[in-house]
Nucleic acid binder design. Structure first.
Lengths: 166, 166
DNA sequence: TATGAAATGCCATAACC
DNA sequence: GGTTATGGCATTTCATA
């Protein structure tokens, strides 16, 4: 699994604590971070720079209120493929990436082959999506839609506790 | 649907373009943003401050490489509740929020009542989670696990195109 | 190769037009 | 919304271990 990581980066306890802090708020001044982790301002800034250069921190983003992102409706789609050979699967992986409505797509074990998370502004938009993306021409045999009534949790991965090294 | 938004905020074209920019990178200096949107630095900072105060921008975070977040395994859980009254549902909404492994939880229509996304470091951890969270004492009648073989798409909501107003 | 301290220069802030 | 003056912050350099 670790061969995905281009180069092995060793993070010490300071790095881990810094990462946890900027995952919660990447706009706080280095002075505050320095105080919280027990380092000097220079050390904090040097470490953060390195973490960003080495792509441990891959992005710094503002999170917008979900109500405003035009994702009024969240659907999950359980779908079965006609033939589930690796070639068919690969093709669908590529196909599904082309649709901006799809905010999540996982190839899964069990009765179904894929689970999709689809976010749209309206039912009409969802209907159009299914017609365009989930047809037999893409190898889809059938699917079932779970319409979201209410969201209890929707954390971006950035909210998870870290488990780095040691 | 709009009654979810506490107060109506009208965003003009400048706001929308600023939001799009900081959703991609919230660390670029206001000078650059000002240049890109065609406003003065002061105007940009005033608008961003307001957007954060009014919770249009709800957070500013660093995104850490997923390979490092200890979320080696992504599971989806389809589950049915014993009794699906509103009280039972509310209780489960509250309960499920207590578990950090749960990075997504949706109450849905159809045969099942809830869909969960659970991210764990190992099967043992997942097993422990199910025993702790998905028992009859929480009203869970039964569940089915979809183990992720491969992820095709996993965009945080922050990557979606905006559809604000107009 | 790491740190911490101090000088420089940039940037955000706020008062004012 | 733009302009300007001020204060704060990141950046760089350097001495140190």
């Amino acid at each position: 699994m670790l061969h995905f990581m281009r180069k092995m980066i060793d993070l010490d306890e300071f790095d881990r604590r810094l990462i946890e802090l900027v995952r919660q708020d990447n706009q706080q001044p280095a002075r505050e971070l320095a105080q919280k982790v027990g380092l000097s301002v220079s050390a904090v800034l040097r470490r953060l720079r390195r973490l960003r250069e080495e792509k441990v921190i891959v992005a710094d983003v503002a999170i917008v209120s979900p109500a405003l992102t035009g994702s009024a409706l969240t659907m999950h789609v359980l779908l079965r493929m006609g033939q589930s050979g690796p070639r068919r699967m690969d093709a669908f992986h590529r196909e599904i990436r082309l649709h901006p409505e799809v905010t999540g797509a996982w190839e899964v074990t069990g009765e179904e082959d894929f689970l999709l998370r689809v976010q749209v502004g309206s039912m009409e938009e969802y209907d159009r999506f299914t017609r365009r993306a989930l047809g037999e021409e893409n190898g889809v045999q059938g699917f079932r839609t779970l319409i979201t009534i209410r969201t209890a949790v929707d954390e971006s991965a950035s909210r998870r506790p870290l488990r780095l090294g040691r």
